[in-house]
Each structure stands twice: as structure tokens, then as C-alpha cells.
Write a protein that binds this DNA or RNA. Structure first.
Lengths: 103, 103
DNA sequence: AAGTTAATATTGTAATACGATATTGTCAAG
DNA sequence: CTTGACAATATCGTATTACAATATTAACTT
């Protein structure tokens, strides 16, 4: 269990991960949570799904349903606007890291 | 004016900036907002001050008042716990950037 | 048609964001 | 002294977000 600030800081990282992956391939909730876990991030579905929903409402990703092995998944992929935001976030993230690591 | 997601993503970055600077030197609100502006971040005092307050409540920074040229500033500096969280955030941020930029 | 299962969706409460507004504390001028 | 001005901090009210827990969906299986 992370402390509160750590969790808070990483929420932004998680959202960037979402965009990043949703640009590269179509993603869906369950699998993506596993991906996040692999990176050491912990997030519940009560947090993750609403993030997906909002990002779709606001036009950063779009979704479609697909039946896989008799289970219905909702896949998300980044829109043009989502890609644009991701590019900006990449630049800012890189600058942040450079500043954090300059001595 | 950034769009909503961009602003949301950067809020985490801003909090990391706070810790980073509060480790290096004592910081206070007005000046720090300028520093953030220089980095292209936009944040109002109604957001910034409560962040400081919470970070203090939760033990990541501590503060003291100081009279400078007849004006009272509240300076913040990172605690041991704050430094610890920063180190973790640095690691995570670096990994994120590496992933974002690998082809 | 009843049960099983993976996946998604939602609910209720607490916490957070943020523009606008108010407060504090000190100095300088009358 | 006390009033005005100023930098800085603090808070208010509304709207949004986080999150664990719970509910729902949809297709397959027996």
C-alpha cells in the first residue's frame, strides 16, 4: 500500500500510460489493469473505468465492444485529440525528469 | 488555457516539482507559482495553497513564517518522508519517460 | 432455464480542484 | 496613533474526482 501522496502522483502517470497504450493498440479494462500492476501501479476498477468513461466523453479515446471467447470487452483507442495531448505530456514528462536528475 | 486532461496530468507533475524544490531550498507560494509559470504550468492559488497545506498535514513538508521586507511569507521545506516519496516518484517518472520514448 | 464467469458499470461517501473573495501582517504617510 | 497600500496567505462554495464495494451485463455451459 502506497501512501496517499504517492498514489496521487501516480494517478497522472497512469492516465499517460492509458493514452500511450491506446495509441499503440486497442486496450480494455481488465487487461490494462494487469499491465499497470506489472509497472507497480495499483488502481481499482472503481477508479479505472470512470477514467476511461471520462476520457471518452471528453474525446481523448473512443471505444467499441467486442465479443472475445464469449465475453464482451470494451476496447478503447486514442483519438487524434488524445494523441495530441499525449505528445504534450511526453514533452513535459521528459523535461520534468531531466530537471529531477540534473545535479 | 490547457484542456482538461492536460491540466489534470500536469497536477501530478506540479506536486513532484514542489517536493523537488522543497528538498533543494525553502520555497514559498508566490515565488513558486512564478517558477511553475516558467515551466509552462498554470495553477491558481486556490489550488496551490491547499496542496501545500495538505502536504504539510500529511507530513511531506514542514513550514515556518518569515518576515521579508515587511511581508510575511510561509516557507516550506521537505521532510524525511517527503524526500522518500520524491525518490520513488523520480524512479517512476524516469521509467515512464523511458517507456514513452522507446520505439 | 439456471448457473458460471469475465468483464464492465454504478453507487455513495469522502476528498480534491479552483476561481473568487477574504484575511493577515507590516510598513509608510499624514 | 491610525489609515492606506501592498504582498502574501487563507478560505469559501460549487463542481468534479477517487475508490472500495456492490450490481449488472452478456455470452457460454450443462
Amino acid at each position: 500500500m502506497d501512501d496517499q501522496l504517492t498514489r496521487d502522483l501516480f494517478l497522472g502517470f497512469i492516465k499517460i500510460h492509458i493514452l500511450h497504450h491506446a495509441v499503440k493498440e486497442d486496450i480494455f479494462g481488465q487487461e490494462f489493469q494487469n499491465e499497470l500492476n506489472r509497472h507497480g501501479y495499483n488502481i481499482s476498477f472503481g477508479t479505472l473505468y470512470p477514467i476511461f468513461h471520462r476520457m471518452e466523453e471528453q474525446g481523448y479515446v473512443e471505444s467499441y465492444k467486442k465479443n472475445v471467447d464469449g465475453k464482451v470487452r470494451r476496447y478503447y483507442k486514442a483519438t487524434k485529440q488524445g494523441k495530441k495531448v499525449l505528445e504534450k505530456a511526453k514533452t513535459q514528462a521528459k523535461e520534468l525528469v531531466e530537471e529531477l536528475y540534473e545535479e
